[in-house]
Each structure stands twice: as C-alpha cells, then as structure tokens.
Design a protein around this nucleic acid. Sequence first.
DNA 1: GAACGTTCTGGGAGCGCTCCCAGGTTTTGG
DNA 2: CCAAAACCTGGGAGCGCTCCCAGAACGTTC
Lengths: 343, 343
Amino acid sequence: MTDAVDPPKARRPNTRLEEVARAAGVSKSTVSRVINGEPYVSSRAREAVHQAIGRLGYSPNQAARTLAGSRANCIAMVVSEHGSRVLNDPFFAGVLRGVHAELAGKRVQLVLMMSKEGDEQDLVNYLCGGHVDGVLVISLHGQDPLPRTLADAGLPTVVCGRPLGAGGVPYVDSDNFNGAMEAARYLVSRGCKRISTIAGPRDMAVGMDRLSGWKRGLSQARFDTDLVAYSDYTPESGAAAMADLLKRAPDLDAVFVGADIMALGALQTLHAHGKKVPEDVAVVGFDDLMIASTAVPPLTTIRQDVEQLGRTMTWRLMAELAGEENLPPFLLLPTSMVTRSSA
Amino acid sequence: MTDAVDPPKARRPNTRLEEVARAAGVSKSTVSRVINGEPYVSSRAREAVHQAIGRLGYSPNQAARTLAGSRANCIAMVVSEHGSRVLNDPFFAGVLRGVHAELAGKRVQLVLMMSKEGDEQDLVNYLCGGHVDGVLVISLHGQDPLPRTLADAGLPTVVCGRPLGAGGVPYVDSDNFNGAMEAARYLVSRGCKRISTIAGPRDMAVGMDRLSGWKRGLSQARFDTDLVAYSDYTPESGAAAMADLLKRAPDLDAVFVGADIMALGALQTLHAHGKKVPEDVAVVGFDDLMIASTAVPPLTTIRQDVEQLGRTMTWRLMAELAGEENLPPFLLLPTSMVTRSSA
DNA sequence: GAACGTTCTGGGAGCGCTCCCAGGTTTTGG
DNA sequence: CCAAAACCTGGGAGCGCTCCCAGAACGTTC
C-alpha cells in the first residue's frame, strides 16, 4: 500500500472535519457541535453526522482542538524523584491502571513525564504552558517542591500520597495511619509482648504515617514504642533492619514491617536467626503485593487498594477540571487486613 | 495570584514564539530555526534567541507544532490485551523506564493508551489519524492483530516481545530461546537426571520460546523432554503445575520454570511435598525479578534486562522515524544466568 | 399579524506554529 | 572584478479545529 516514491511521508489519510460536514450535508460548526455534545443540534443533523463519522472513520485532530480551544484535552502523570525506584514498584503500575480505568470513555489523553535532575524548570515550563489541563503527581520524597509550584501556577494538581512539603495541594492517599494502627492492635490482641517495627525513610510521609499509626496502636495498649528501625523499601535493607532489631531486643516476639517488600527481607533474617514465624516472631506487612501470598510463610499484611488510588486521584482531578466546587482537599482510602500465616 | 473573578480560566501565561522573536530582535522564522536546530542561523542570532527563551521561560506550544508541522512529536505506548495483568507486572514498569530513558532529551511526548474490548476501532482510528508518529506495542497475547493493522496502515510500529500473528512487524525481545537453553544445560551439567519444565501459555511467544529452548538444551544432551506442564504467570498456577509434574514424575530432580513469578508457586509446592531445594529438586527461574533473591531458597534464574528492552524498542522506533534505512527487522537481547541457591 | 423568544445553522476569525519562498548578505572561484 | 554559490533573514499562507456572531426557521404571545 505504501509504495510511494517517498517512504517516510506516505501516510496522511486524515479525514477532516470538513469532509464529515460535506458527507453529512451540514456545516463544520454543526459537526463540531455534535462531536462536543453541545445542545442546539436537530436530531436529524446529529444522526447524519454520526453516520458520516462512522462511515469515514473520522477521528478529530487533537492538536487542532487543543490549539483552537481552551482545553488541552490532556492530563499529565508526572513521576517525580528519578523514578528508578518508583517505576520498579508494582505500586506504580496499579495506580496507572486505576488512572486509565477512570479515564476510559473520556476524550482525554494521558501523557507520562518523569522529572529528571536539572530538567525541573523545563518540566514546569511545559506543564504550566497550557499543554495539559491538569497534573497527577507521583512523588516519592515528600519534600518535592513540584506540586507546590504547579498548584501555585494555578494548574489543577492532585498528588498521590500525602505530600510533606506541599500543604494545601489536594492529595489522595491510603489511610496508612489507621492501617498501621490496626496491625499494631492485632499483634497486641494476639498476645505479643515485645512488638517492634521496621519503618520507611523519615522523609516520606507514607513511612511516617505508618510509623505513627503503629505507635498510636501500641501506646493505647500501654506498650513501649521504642523498637523502631528504619529501612528504605528494599528487601536487603529490610533484612538489615531486622538484624538490627534482633540485636537490640533478642526477646522481641513481633514486628510490623511498613512494606511487604521489606518484610521479605525481614523474613529471611528471622529464618537465618532460627526464629520461627509466627511462633517465635509474628510478622505483619503492609501493601499486600502479589508476592505476599507466596512468601514463606504467607504474609499477614495490610492491604491497600492502589488501583483505587489511581481512580480516585483521577476522579478528583477531573471533577476539578469540570468546575466542581468545594471538593475535598484530600481523600483517604481505607485499608483492610489480610490474615495469612505470618501473624 | 489567581484571584480573578473567573477561577477556571485564570491560567494562560503562554509566552509565544513571537514574543521571543521580539525580545531577541529577530523574526519568528529565525526563532523557529533555532528551536528546531536547523542550520543557516548566525551564532549571534542563535545566542540572542537562547537568552530570550531562558529569560521568558518559553516552552513551545506542542499543539501548534503538531498542527503546523508534519510530525506529531509524540509516540504512543499501547498496552494491549486488557492490561490487567500486564500492568501488574514489574515487567511493564521496567520497559517503561527504558522507554523514558531513551526518550530523555528528545522533544517527544509519550502518550499511554490501553486497548479495551470494543475500543479497538477507535484506537486504530486515533493512532492512524496522524496524532502520533509511531507506536510501541506491548501486547501479551501473540495473536493480537493490532500490530499488523498499524504496520499495514504505514505507521511505524515496534512490538515488545515476538508477536505470533504479526510476521514482518519489527520487534524487540529477550533471547528467550537461548536463555532457556542455558538453563537446561546448566541443570544437565549439575548432574540432574529427570528434568521438567513449567511453561507459559501456548498462545504467547515468550512461553513457547522458553519451552523450545529448554527442549533443545535437553535433547542435545539426549534427555527426555516429556515433562512439561503449562501455567499462566501467576504463583497459584505455578504451584498447581508443579503439583501436576510431581504427580506424573515423583522422581523428578529438576524444574526449569519459565517465569520467576511461577517459580515462587512451584517452590511452595515443593516445600509442601517435603522436597528440599536444591538437594532433591533443583529449580531455575526466568526474569530475575527483584523478589527472586528473597525467595526461599534464593532463586537461580535467567536474567532478562527489561529496561534495555524498552530502550531498544524506542531506539528502533526513533531510528525509523529519523528515516534510517535497512534497520534490523528484529532485535534479540542477550540474557544471563544468575546463580543463587535453588540450583 | 407584528413582536418576541427559542432553537437551529453557517460563516469566518484566529489559536501558535512550520515551512515555503523571496530577497539580502557574504563568501568563493574563474 | 564580477558571477555564482553559499549563507542568512523575514514575510506570510495555512495546518484543522473551536468559538463568536449573525441570521434563518420555527413557535408563542399579545
């Protein structure tokens, strides 16, 4: 089919709006109205246009719509903070799936961007330059100034996970505090006496919120909250943190690990130290990754619904774009405990 | 700052190309040439334009560029086949990271699309409508007609993983055949006598290629290749497949599992049957997921570099868009064996 | 039936850029 | 030293759409 003399530019079968208009026997304006679902179109005209569109396989030129109109029909998902770890994470994939599910049917494109060191200004220029209608930010380190910058520029922005340094920017997060508190209470109710935790880095809200929830759960039961080790969301550092805890308190009989991926490392360490799980040490994780069920032993954990996180972020952003008012400044999604064998 | 009467449309601080031109004391054309890195611009003018751009924080309007120019400056990444599983997979995230890395610095947007049932025609219309310059397809089930359709429409397309039903469409894949063969040979060299395999679904090239490689490795050593069970890339089905193999051949002493995620399930089953790994049964996986190292015991596996997969796909696509000729019709990336404790 | 609204329709300006063309300036070479 | 070639520059058409405006067609009311 593409046997033209000039290979690289053989393509361009764009049916244009004008052709649809001609085929339907109406004007460009009417076709435009039909496409955008505007009122004041007779049902006869509407029908004719729909038929013509179907017949010609017409797809509106987004660039032209964006240029002419006031909206870009496009939102950006910005993965901040290098992304090396973020993108490794099943977390990201789940969020993305939710975003896409929520966007289904809407004529909105999703463009993906990553902030790289040095590029920040470019990124801000681009985003604020009217190329996108709104932004979903997935930023790992809480102090990231990006959400603030975007929000200050008047660009509708929703952050995934409570942002530490961006008070006032709308965000959606799992209820990490209550989830962790539930984990702590469960360990107490199970009869554990010396309960420790492996927390995420101090500069990430998710780590801090889970730590706070754990502390609250324990202190309400009048337990000590001194057995805290910090780790950084890798199995290796989880293993190291567990070893540290064991050295500090050889008698510990429970550990709440602030992420399944770290719990995997912790389990290894416990195994290496001859501790039986859950008989000697009970383990509760957080996230409920797919691999939690195949850990040895299968991991009891706090599930968060990451897909719902993506859906909710998108809903919040689209609602704002639609001009809805008095929207909630943040949304917390409930977690649920999944009991398996490790505790 | 946004204290206008009308909240939703307060934003629009776009500096336009014309303002840059005025600020730099040159014409629009010259600014355009500088931005696009064209020749025939005096270094004095070039310098002035760059300064003006920096001063004004100018970012070219993509919509206008697309509309006016012949290129869309945009490529699509299409996740075919529901995406429910795909997006769960760390695989996807790795590819995406590679794509992004390769795109860094290029003025090309990445838009993400998922094909949903019923939407196929819309998707094809959109993609072929000149909105994107090229497409990266991640399609799990090999028979997907999408790549063929796109390629036939003259749209530069690169597929991730060998497509079963789309001969002639350029693709990039890991060298699954040789990786699996290496695994089989390794098990032979280790002295295993009764070697089985858990393969992926028959309608996916990745599963078939790994199975073929395993068969080739064994038959070269004059081993039987009858111990094959099929599974579908979940830990659960991997566990079931392992149980099936054990029932058919209680004396088996090795299993090559065509994906780490299935190997996790297989390990569980072996454990439940009282088989020691690797003493009773040696296990080799494929992929080298992050969790392979925290399996019990740590998994010996064939590593594939998924990020490199993304980079290579992108490179191949961009090369084609740049008009390069005689590009390879497909690219196979080498795998490497990672020896841990399970074999 | 004149005066008004309401519903529908088409014409045309212009979004911000690229790309072609025409013209000016410098370099090169016979 | 003058022609040709190379290098620069600016002007302006037009990409495909939206959105504003003006006006046609149809009631509905006094």
